[in-house]
Design a protein around this nucleic acid. Structure first.
Length: 741
DNA sequence: CACCCTCGAGTTCA
DNA sequence: CTCGAGGGTG
């Protein structure tokens, strides 16, 4: 990774050094462009660049599109796009990384100003800076930022971006005006773009910024008509927001916020996410707010820009050689970090699907520590182009799920090796095969006996969506199916679950594994440590009473009691617990309501099954196929023999139509914490009232009941204009129907 | 045929 | 909670 000297740097020191290097590099470039005189030698110049790259690697938060390391190539680089000299230099902004640093900046600004300062706070879009030149109201040139002085001419491509006007609205435009803004892809558009790229076998973009940059740099030459169409489609999907004006003599406005109003009147796209705050504390609140609500914005943001609102103060405060003094960028901690890919290993899920995942050097990203991330399947591993041993870029998609973006190719040293998908199941050594020809996913066909699959199914049975058995989670499932040799596993498959006895539980021993590495833990003398989760030593009182042997632990007692209770759980839950393909909570509920008993489902024909709302030919086939397997039938028989009730009491029999309720025909989504309801209780209430409890918001959704903690679903509802109600209204909705709210 | 939806899996936190 | 895959529906 890095040398030892730089590892002791703090972020602030690194930031200062990076700023200095940037200044020198830009000076060197300026000198090169302006005249043929170089102020630094080529060697020195290269050294600056390399050092800056190293700092950015150590501190990813220092990276920005403004960085000289991001602008194309060195000094003499020729590109496919003609160079354009901006009428006025495009400055970059200085960065701060904490509220403290921001405060220091604001104190300085207020000290240097002789009157009250208002701050305009806006989002810093993670996109591509563009300069639009309008002459007498007509778009003449669009250029990338480049090094700030000279950019690339991308006018032809920009003309395909729908949202950018070719001609300004109204009259009285200045003869020459340069408008600065950010071109970017909205998160949703970006997702669709990448999906499409993947489908067409084209390159996947690591992030919206790369996609925007790549799209704007496309050239027309040597393209087929189909490729041209695709190029134009991509360009038209780009978004832009303008945030400033370059060359302009005597503007008719007095503040930055008025400038935005004017730009808007001209028909240029301006952001709605900005606020003018009268104190620096107010600005800090704005920073805080979006730090916590980054995901609620339709585009990616990497920070906040704070500008002094009054334009006259801009003049008075001036600028350094690199950045204005009247604005600052607050950079959020990066969502992207670099780490080492130590290995790629595969796991086997309860369905037998084999999934490769990345094992990484532990790293902190977006507030939590991550060491693993899924790689989905071997095609994804290949598409991402990562090799074991690579330094890789990692981020949290949607702030939660760790995602490997790709390798840092420049940091390879030749010792990296390619991942090879195993041909045999890592847990039972059965030869892996796709479920059907042409499938990407490989599966372990040994469903009955593969320990990973049995363990997974047993755990699934205990899960909340299935029988919700307390004390039957990951640990208990592993203990029951794979205790330490030589203890015989009490469960060979899930068929024996309801026959478990305390005598079978007591002798179970499991190997203690390190929570972080998953490796077996051993005592200092090398003896592997084991634990007996289902027994405890007798208390002294028990010893006195003559009970000298080991006693069942409380989790053993809970487990057995909960298993007893599960025998009479609703039919739908039992169906989910059977692990039938494509039958999850929703399909199971529909089947249970329609047929009323497992026997009725078993004896139904394919067509009869497909009668059920939400069940089609494929789920019907999956059900019929499932009942044809001997060991599946064995599960049902043994559970029934143990007393499991596979019949809904009082059900009138197959084909019973659902009765209407106050919510009949309406679709409701519950999200966040609804006072007086549990997550499941809310769903139950919707169904009980005859409504449909959907899990995602779409335009078919009639109501979204949102409580505190509601996330993206609420945002989606707002976007789609779906009626949003609170817990109180929700209660009335399910009690009295839609007219009551 | 184009949405819209559910399933299934992975992941980490409180 | 989110994504991709693939099923279901209008």
């Amino acid at each position: 990774m890095a040398n030892t000297v730089t590892e002791d740097l703090t972020l602030e020191q690194a930031s200062a050094e990076a700023g200095e290097l940037t200044t020198r590099i830009l000076e060197a470039r300026d000198a090169y462009y302006d005249r043929d005189a170089a102020i630094y030698s080529d060697d020195e110049y290269d050294h600056f660049i390399r050092r800056l790259e190293e700092l950015e690697r150590l501190f990813p938060e220092l990276q920005s599109q403004d960085s000289p390391t991001q602008t194309v190539g060195g000094r003499a680089e020729t590109t496919l796009f003609a160079p354009v000299t901006h009428a006025e230099r495009m400055l970059s902004l200085d960065n701060v990384f904490s509220i403290d640093e921001f405060d220091q900046w604001a104190v300085r600004v207020e000290r240097d100003s002789d009157r009250h300062v208002d701050y305009l706070c806006e989002l810093k879009i993670d996109g591509l800076a563009i300069n639009l030149r309008y002459e007498n109201g007509v778009l003449t040139t669009a250029a990338t930022r480049g090094d700030g002085v000279v950019g690339e001419d991308v006018t032809d491509n920009i003309r395909h971006v729908k949202i950018i006007p070719q001609r300004l609205r109204g009259t009285g435009h200045p003869p020459l005006v340069e408008v600065r803004g950010e071109v970017y892809f909205e998160v949703e558009t970006f997702r669709k773009l990448n999906a499409q790229q993947a489908e067409e076998g084209e390159r996947i973009f690591a992030n919206p910024r790369n996609a925007a940059s790549g799209s704007l740099r496309q050239v027309r030459e040597n393209k087929t008509q189909a490729q041209l169409d695709r190029m134009y489609r991509r360009l038209s999907g780009l978004s832009m927001l303008v945030h400033g004006i370059g060359a302009w003599q005597n503007p008719p406005v007095a503040s930055q916020s008025q400038t935005y109003e004017l730009l808007k009147e001209w028909g240029l796209p301006t952001s709605t996410h900005f606020r003018v705050k009268s104190t620096k504390e107010g600005a800090a609140e704005f920073i805080q707010y979006y730090g916590e609500n980054r995901a609620s914005v339709e585009h990616e943001i990497d920070g906040i820009v704070i500008k002094v609102d009054e334009l006259a103060l801009h003049e008075e405060l001036g600028a350094t050689s690199r950045a204005p003094r009247w604005a600052i960028a607050y950079k959020y901690p990066p969502e992207q970090v670099n780490t080492k890919l130590l290995d790629i290993v595969v796991s086997v899920g309860r369905t037998g699907r084999v999934t490769p995942f990345a094992v990484m050097e532990k790293v902190r990203v977006a507030g939590s520590e991550v060491r693993q991330a899924t790689l989905h399947n071997q095609d994804v591993v290949k598409a991402k182009g990562v090799l074991i041993g690579d330094t890789i870029v990692l981020r949290k998609a949607g702030d939660v799920i760790p995602e490997v973006l790709g390798p840092v190719v420049e940091l390879r040293d030749g010792s990296e090796r390619e991942f090879v998908m195993p041909t045999r199941c890592p847990e039972c050594n059965t030869v892996l095969a796709p479920a059907k020809a042409g499938d990407v996913d490989l599966r372990c066909p040994n469903a009955e006996n593969c320990p990973a699959q049995v363990r997974g199914r047993v755990e699934h049975i205990g899960s909340r969506g299935a029988l919700d058995i307390e004390a039957l989670g990951e640990v208990a499932a592993a203990a029951l199916t794979q205790p330490r040799i030589p203890v015989k596993p009490p469960l060979h498959t899930e068929a024996g679950l309801f026959d478990l006895t305390i005598d079978e539980l007591l002798p179970i021993e499991v190997i203690v594994r390190d929570a972080e590495t998953g490796l077996e833990k051993a005592d200092p003398d090398g003896v592997i440590r084991v634990r007996s989760p289902f027994r405890r030593n007798p208390t002294s009182a028990e010893k006195k009473a003559g009970l000298t042997g080991p006693q069942p632990s409380s989790s053993a007692l809970t487990l057995l009691a909960e298993i007893q209770k599960a025998k009479t759980k609703p039919l739908a839950r039992l169906l989910v617990a059977l692990n039938i393909r494509h039958v999850g909570p929703v399909a199971a509920r529909a089947l249970a309501d329609y047929f009323g008993s497992l026997e009725a489902i078993r004896s139904a024909t394919r067509d009869e099954l497909a009668e059920v709302d939400g069940v089609g030919g494929i789920i019907a086939d999956a059900l019929i196929d499932w009942f044809e397997v001997g060991w599946h039938r064995d599960i049902v028989e043994r559970w029934a023999a143990a007393g499991v009730q596979f019949t809904t009491p009082g059900h009138p029999g197959p084909g019973a139509a659902a009765v209407g309720g106050v919510l009949s025909g309406l679709t409701v989504v519950a999200t966040g914490t609804l006072d007086g309801f549990t997550r499941e209780g809310a769903q139950e209430a919707i169904i009980a009232a005859g409504g449909k409890a959907a899990s995602s918001v779409s335009k078919n959704t009639d109501f979204v009941a949102a409580g505190p903690g509601a996330g993206s679903k609420l945002a989606k509802a707002e976007q789609l204009g779906v009626r949003i109600i609170d817990a109180e209204q929700f209660r009335r909705l399910v009690d009295e129907g839609p007219d009551a709210v």
